[in-house]
């Protein structure tokens, strides 16, 4: 079905400086400036937010769900999981929260 509305922008919000931007939803808007204006009330009126990104939906390249088997681990790969390496909050705080937590 053809979408006759304004283009879709995906909205990402950031709850505090240094935190990652998280996808919170999408919004129709005629351009990026208006998407920022409308996205602010759409997604940030109920929760903490210091910054939002808007990205044209068509700028996003995605895998196909029919290929979702590529994400299945064929053998035990638990050695890759990082749950055993807890980063103390104090360490994260001292690096300003900007370091890549991997």
């Amino acid at each position: 079905m053809t979408d006759t509305q304004w283009p879709v922008y995906e909205v990402f919000h950031q709850q505090a400086r240094g935190e990652p931007h998280m996808h919170v939803g999408s919004i129709h808007a005629p351009d990026a400036d208006m998407a920022l204006i409308l996205g602010k009330e759409q997604y940030c009126r109920r929760q903490a937010c210091v910054n939002i990104w808007v990205v044209p939906h068509e700028a996003i390249h995605a895998t196909a769900y029919e290929n979702d088997d590529i994400f299945i681990r064929g053998t035990d790969k638990s050695y890759r999981e990082s749950w055993g390496y807890q980063t103390p909050k104090t360490v994260r705080a001292t690096d300003g929260g900007t370091a890549d937590d991997g």
């Binding site: 509305q5 304004w6 919004i27 129709h28 808007a29 204006i37 409308l38 996205g39 602010k40 009330e41 759409q42 009126r45």
Partner: peptide, 10 residues
């Protein structure tokens, strides 16, 4: 439109 409605109401 919905988005404008929400922003203006807010």
């Amino acid at each position: 439109i919905l988005e404008a409605d929400i922003a203006f109401s807010s």
